[in-house]
């Protein structure tokens, strides 16, 4: 390699390294401002600025959804299994909105501590499967829970032999991470 080419190679490498480093530092410095949504834990522990529009994201707590009769308003709790935030929303619900499903609400906190959402988005995970597989998986999980309650060791499920089976069962447990 000629000296000029070597010099150019070093310059290009240095350029990429420099810009990469600068970007990394900038992203780290602004980590807090780059928070797309607060998880319920962050919402409670970090303290949320009032009078500012933010997003709160988590799972819709099972059994928490209450529809106000005669209006389009619903109330529910957003949870990450550590803390729960009460949310109220008026408007059209996204198709995937249901209990146990991920959700991101944008709005602000009201005086009585309820998070009033002006905008509600459903979040889904990265698992895709046909309904039959999902059913088999669910049945398998229920059996495993039953076994565990009866004191049997948690054996690997034998009935659902797809790769997705093990993977999404694991994903279920770590759902709180993604949301």
């Amino acid at each position: 390699m000629t000296p000029t080419r070597k010099r150019r190679l070093v310059m290009v490498t240095a350029l990429v390294a420099g810009v990469g480093l600068a970007t990394t530092l900038a992203l780290r410095a602004f980590q807090e401002n780059m928070l797309y949504f607060y998880s319920p834990t962050e919402f409670v522990e970090l303290g949320v600025p009032e009078e500012r529009t933010i997003r709160v994201g988590g799972l819709v707590a099972d059994g928490s959804v209450r529809r106000m009769p005669g209006s389009m308003t619903i109330e529910f709790q957003v949870t990450d299994h550590a803390y729960a935030v009460p949310v109220s929303y008026t408007g059209v619900l996204p198709d995937l909105f249901r209990e146990g499903q991920g959700v991101v609400a944008r709005g602000r906190i009201s005086d009585n501590g309820v998070f009033v959402a002006e905008n509600l988005m459903a979040k889904h995970d990265e698992n895709y499967m046909p309904p039959e597989v999902a059913q088999a998986l669910h049945a398998g999980k229920m059996r495993a829970i039953e076994r565990a309650q009866q004191g049997f060791p948690n054996e690997p499920e034998g009935n659902s032999g797809t790769t997705v089976a093990d993977d999404s069962a694991a994903a279920d447990g770590s759902a709180a991470r993604g949301y």
């Binding site: 797309y36 991101v104 889904h124 895709y128 499967m129 797809t162």
Partner: peptide, 23 residues
């Protein structure tokens, strides 16, 4: 790295894809 509305990757090199083969 961040909380996002978009879900994580379905196909990645490190683990089995979170999708059945017929899809």
């Amino acid at each position: 790295w961040w909380n996002t509305l978009h879900q994580p990757a379905t196909i990645s090199k490190l683990s089995a894809p979170s999708m059945t083969m017929d899809m």
